[in-house]
Design a protein around this nucleic acid. Structure first.
Length: 284
DNA sequence: CTTCAGACCTGGTGGC
DNA sequence: TGCCACCAGGTCTGAA
């Protein structure tokens, strides 16, 4: 899936296209996404999109006058497709043309937004207003934004010191910090010289402080690069992100460690049902 | 309580 | 070429 940098890149690319556009037609496929049916989209009809927000890996489509909010999570394989082609503005046709498109919104004046997710691990919810957004269980459970002021060394130290789980599992827990996934956790841990398998409660304050800085810098660099394109992911305009060329550890088993003064070799191993990559020499 | 394996899905890849 | 096992950016559940 898109992790925070990919979702943020999509948000930035989409915003100028959809802002102030009115929704002229809607269609949904009768399939389950993340085990739940796609909500009725009728409340979106005639609504005007005013902003596109992001919280963790969630995209929030807001509409004018306190109207409904579409909450979208891209799961592992979700994408948002946009076409400004005025011929392609029938949402039902968009669903018929591609069996992995599960939601389509036609824009007044031409153009179409489609949510495509082959694996169907994504999530869609339509909330009636801002109050419902703050009550949404998954959103309410999210920890601080890693690029926000609340994500501090004090905070992270407090959240790590009480857990015997691995630091990697802890950082991937969205209630600790919102938006990190497998790739960026591993990248940040390499940057800060911490082994993914290290127990969270064995990490001191100074290392937490470095981790906060490292997480921020990895995310900022990735956003600047337009995210990472592996498999499905594309920017809003269909182009590719290029942060994957800057990976220090992810997918780099048996390659030399990228740290200049380190002669280690990147190791791959299964951890908590996922794959971890790290340098056994400089990550402790 | 916390932690972790398994389930949920499809598609792409690499081995035989 | 075909078949099959395995792997993939995430999240939730239930069991230990």
């Amino acid at each position: 899936m898109p992790e925070l940098p990919e979702v943020e890149t999509i948000r930035r690319g989409l915003l100028p296209v959809v802002r102030d556009r009115r929704i002229a037609g809607v269609a949904r496929r009768p399939v389950a996404l993340h085990g739940r049916p796609i909500p009725d989209l009728a409340p979106l009809l005639r609504a005007r999109i005013t902003s596109l927000g992001r919280r963790g890996k969630y995209l929030l489509w807001r509409t004018a006058d306190g109207g409904p909010v579409l909450v979208m999570h891209l799961g592992m394989s979700g994408r948002v497709l946009v076409t400004e082609d005025s011929d392609m503005c029938d949402p039902r046709r968009a669903l018929a043309a591609d069996r992995h498109v599960h939601l389509a919104l036609a824009l007044e004046g031409g153009g179409l937004i489609a949510f495509r997710d082959p694996r169907r691990f994504g999530q869609l919810a339509l909330l009636s207003d801002e109050a419902a957004v703050s009550r949404h269980p998954a959103l309410a459970a999210l920890g601080p934004e890693p690029l926000g002021a609340d994500f501090t060394a004090d905070y992270l130290y407090r959240r790590l010191r009480t857990s015997r789980a691995s630091v990697k599992a802890r950082l991937m827990d969205q209630s600790v910090v919102a938006g990190l996934g497998n790739i960026y956790v591993l990248e940040a841990l390499h940057l800060t010289g911490i082994r993914p398998t290290r127990r969270a409660d064995r990490i001191g304050y100074q290392r937490c402080a470095r981790l906060v800085v490292g997480i921020r810098s990895v995310l900022e660099e990735a956003i600047a690069a337009g995210g990472s394109s592996l498999r499905d992911y594309r920017l809003a305009d269909g182009s590719l992100g290029y942060f994957q060329h800057r990976f220090r550890v992810y997918g780099r088993e048996n390659r030399p460690c990228a740290r200049p003064d380190c002669d280690g070799t990147i190791t791959k191993r299964a951890q908590a049902g996922r794959t971890s990559y790290y340098c056994p020499v400089c990550q402790r």
